[in-house]
């Protein structure tokens, strides 16, 4: 079947870049889910990965460095009927945009956040990013990395994400399925995608991941919290699994549970929120405002 989710814009990623696999998996997932193109909004930040909105034939917001997720959240709040997917690089999402990453967990909007995780700031020539392991000395660095890495899975679990997964850009089948599960999940979903940078990161390469990544769920882990169960028990087990890094690295879904979405909570404050479409609601009639403020003015007499 023809992939109607790709644009014909020329792609400027390096040959062999892990981003290509993510682009393919994402557009295949959208194709599978049959979401009309015009109902999807894709946001990106700044960096190689964040250019992906240009390559996907949906409404695209190429935002500022670190602001992909927060803009995606606002799109979802403004029009909950839209399917919103935000993408970031690890620098974009876990460095400059980390405040939004944490706050998004607290909101739990029904949307998807994908982090293209390659350990480097590619577009600025390979500086260490927040996920580059301690003491690694990849070829683009002058000195070894003296900072500890952040653990995106652990951070997402702690922040309240109700769906947290890891996948891999060279395993398109797994990634496509994970994206579909994330989109179907009702709540804030995060996918941390292992994505080798062929130009600057000569340690966390395809060879590195191919022999280390194993399927967490195939090995017996069930990430789903049954409805009505307290998720905290499974979250703490998931935290433990998130600490695995070394010869064996787990990929798959770490946690999935249901909790009130932000739309549901907003509807308790704003009557009818989520049932009315604020975008389509007219605010004027032949240029005259629809809102009647007479009573409000009189409240100040």
């Amino acid at each position: 079947m023809h992939n109607t989710y790709k644009t014909n814009v020329e792609i400027d990623w390096c040959p062999g870049c892990g981003d290509f696999g993510i682009l393919n998996a994402l557009t295949l997932a959208l194709q599978d889910l049959r979401i009309p193109n015009e109902n999807v909004v894709l946001t990106g930040g700044i960096g190689c990965s964040s250019k992906i909105p240009h390559y996907v034939n949906v409404y695209a917001l190429h935002t500022l460095h670190g602001r992909s997720l927060v803009q995606g959240e606002a799109v979802k709040m403004a029009n909950p009927e839209l399917e919103v997917i935000s993408v970031s690089g690890d620098g974009d999402g876990l460095g400059i945009g980390s405040a939004h990453l944490v706050a998004a967990g607290r909101r739990n909007l029904d949307m998807t956040y994908m982090i293209f995780d390659n350990g480097v700031y590619g577009l600025t020539k390979g500086q260490a990013s927040p996920t580059l392991p301690y003491k690694e000395n990849i070829k683009s660095l002058e000195t070894e990395n003296i900072k500890f890495p952040v653990n995106p899975i652990f951070l997402a679990l702690a922040s309240g994400y109700t769906f947290v997964a890891r996948s891999y850009s060279y395993n398109i089948k797994h990634l496509k399925e994970t994206i579909e599960r994330a989109i179907r999940h009702k709540g804030m979903a995060l996918i941390d995608i292992m994505q080798p940078c062929v130009t600057y990161n000569n340690i966390n390469t395809k060879e590195f991941y191919d022999k280390r990544l194993y399927d967490l769920e195939a090995s017996g882990w069930n990430p789903v919290v049954n409805k009505g169960d307290d998720p905290s028990v499974k979250i703490s087990q998931a935290v433990q699994r998130s600490m695995e890094w070394g010869d064996k690295i787990p990929m798959g879904v770490f946690i999935q549970y249901e909790r009130e979405t932000y739309a549901e909570r907003l509807s308790t404050l704003i009557h009818g929120y989520g049932t009315r479409n604020m975008v389509k609601e007219p605010i004027d009639q032949n240029g005259k405002p629809v809102a009647n403020i007479q009573e409000v003015m009189e409240s100040f007499f």
Partner: peptide
């Protein structure tokens, strides 16, 4: 950023 994105959403 939220105000900008909401504006671009209409």
């Amino acid at each position: 950023n939220m105000a900008i994105a909401a504006a671009n959403t209409g």
